[in-house]
């Protein structure tokens, strides 16, 4: 962050806070293929505070929400008691630092999926943590349409399952690579659609790598850019899908703990009979995302090892899809 940018930011933040804000340190945090996260230390009228500034990277996934929308989601979640960093200020004006951004309070903890899963496996599963995750999801799902502050999410689909199948087929067609195994999974979903439920806010990327955890407690649910109205079981299924277990296949909830503890934490609104549909949907969705990421490398748009290797996750997901489709049809 250069001097001119820092000065512009100091001025803007001070006007928003109604207090003298001065940035005393700024460093780029790791992680985030889509965004840049800066750890910034400030003084507010002389008192130190620790914040995070979140803005866009050059390469932005077309399907992700802009920063201003993510700020509105964070605010809605914070108001509902979801464990998220306190949202502070949002700037849609690209004139301040070159791109829209928002600022939130910094929280402790790590968001490293592998490390979390390893720690949970070492103690034979972390049921209290997974129980807490269920409670977090239930709080998120209390946010329901219509919401004027979340109007950018559009109208909810009448049937989230049917809409999911159609959306995945559209993306497969746009990508242009025929994927018979993924189609096999989608056909199984189509045969086994659960009846629609009233829509709720789904986080849509609620998995171990997007949770900040400190000493077995969630300190923040991160990365809201894929949030949308949908079936609450989509989030439960995404967390429980085989692909997010980090080498702990028996710890079905995110490789962290037992699925039962997650559902118990969530409460009676969780219907275990709907999970196989949404767990298969999760494998399919990740395969379609991975294919899109591989395509960014192949097209020359964003060449690099990480995107190239992401495409090679697809065959393993296809193996999951075949197993899950068979179980769903059984």
């Amino acid at each position: 962050m250069d001097e001119a940018r820092r000065a512009a930011l100091n001025t803007w933040l001070s006007s928003q806070a109604g207090a003298a804000i001065e940035i005393t340190a700024a460093s780029l945090l790791s992680g985030g293929a889509i965004q840049q996260n800066w750890a910034i230390s400030v003084t507010r009228d002389g008192s130190p505070e620790e914040w995070v500034l979140r803005t866009d990277n050059a390469a932005v996934l077309a399907v992700s929400l802009p920063r201003t929308a993510e700020y509105a989601l964070l605010s809605a979640a914070f108001a509902e008691g979801v464990t998220v960093p306190e949202p502070l200020f949002c700037c849609a004006d690209t004139g301040v630092i070159g791109a829209p951004f928002f600022v939130m309070r910094r929280v402790g903890g790590i968001a490293a999926g592998h490390r979390l899963a390893k720690a949970a496996a070492a103690q034979g599963g972390d049921a209290p943590l997974v129980h807490a995750l269920g409670r977090e999801l239930a709080r998120i799902h209390r946010i329901r349409p219509p919401r004027a502050d979340l109007a950018f999410l559009g109208e909810p689909d009448a049937d989230a399952g049917t809409a999911f199948i159609a959306a995945m087929r559209t993306r497969l067609d746009a990508a242009g690579t025929p994927r018979p195994a993924v189609e096999w999974g989608l056909a199984a979903l189509e045969r086994n659609r659960p009846p629609p439920l009233p829509p709720v806010l789904c986080h849509n990327d609620f998995r171990t790598g997007n949770l900040m955890v400190e000493q077995h407690a969630v300190t923040a649910v991160l990365d809201w850019e894929f949030a949308a109205w949908g079936d609450p079981h989509a989030d439960l299924g995404w967390l429980c899908a085989p692909c997010w277990r980090f080498g702990n296949p028996t710890l079905e909830a995110g490789g962290l703990g037992p699925r039962d503890a997650l559902l118990e934490g969530y409460g009676p609104a969780a219907d275990p009979a709907r999970l196989p549909f949404w767990e298969l949907a999760a494998s399919i969705r990740w395969a379609v995302i991975a294919a899109d990421q591989g395509a960014r490398h192949l097209s020359g748009q964003d060449r690099g090892l990480e995107l190239a290797l992401t495409a090679h996750i697809i065959p393993e997901l296809e193996l999951d899809i075949l197993r899950q489709a068979e179980a769903l049809d059984a």
Binding site: A181, H312, I314, P315, E316, E318, L319
Partner: peptide
């Protein structure tokens, strides 16, 4: 028959991309 063909195709793809999955 379709199921067996898919199984063969996916196992071949895994043998290259993710042999540990097999």
């Amino acid at each position: 028959q379709a199921s067996a063909l898919l199984e063969e195709m996916v196992r071949l793809r895994c043998a290259v991309s993710a042999p540990r999955a097999l």
